[in-house]
Amino acid sequence: MAAGVSSLHGETSYRYRKFKSDSMMAVTVGATVLTLIPLFLVLGYLLTKGVASLNWRSLRPCPRRSAKKAAEWPTRSSARSRWWGSRA
């Protein structure tokens, strides 16, 4: 009887220890997943926002004129002629 109780206690203790071990190992896996989430969030944010605003004009070299003049300079040729016309 005593041996049976002892065995029962040993089995319970082992189960508890095994459960604790498995739980802690699962916690380490959870920590890894939690750590990697910001990586994917940052990369995802950069990709979604960056790719959406990527265009050919942003890759072309900047014009030589100053920033102020470039801001005033109309981009379309018709608008440019109107601009020169209005100045004239």
């Binding site: 190992m25 916690v27 380490t28 896996v29 959870g30 920590a31 890894t32 939690l34 750590t35």
Partner: peptide, 14 residues
């Protein structure tokens, strides 16, 4: 620190 230790144990032991 807890997260880093968890990551390190997961990578080295699990």
């Amino acid at each position: 620190v807890p997260l880093s230790l968890g990551v390190a144990l997961c990578l080295s032991e699990m």
